[in-house]
Amino acid sequence: MKESPDAIKKVSIIISKGSLDGIYPGLIMANGARMEGIEATLFFTFFGLDAILKKRVDKLTVATVGNPGMHMPTLLGALPGMSAFATAMMKKQMEKLDIPPAGEFLEMIKDAGAGIYACRATVDMFGLSKDDFIPQVDGIINVGEFYERSAGAQIIFT
């Protein structure tokens, strides 16, 4: 296969947002990297941690307030049930495209050989421990360790 001299070999993807639409781009990019034979590390920080918390992973929602991409007036987006509705719609579309629910997607990404890490500062700030996380998480690391693991990688912040 053709290989240009500067083909990407390694990526580190930071996921910092906790909504469904905040988490999926990073998951798709990490999985896509592995599909191309690119080494991949996922680093979850701040509300992005929701994606790897046992209690939250399969309850992610789409934000309908403060999300200009929804093309929805703020007051309308704030109506009860609006976020649930938007979430259900998006999940249905994703299923059609064979994009798995977050929990299953993380299993897939782990099986594909990517590293999955939680941010130490956020874990301490929210008073969490290793037991709060899904089993696919490789560890809780600090920012220095994140950079060490990212040696030679492209770093992508989402």
Binding site: M35, E36, G37, D111, A112, G113
Partner: peptide
């Protein structure tokens, strides 16, 4: 991934 290393689907 083990059977078809470095880009299995492709």
């Amino acid at each position: 991934y083990e059977l078809f290393p470095n880009g299995p689907a492709k």
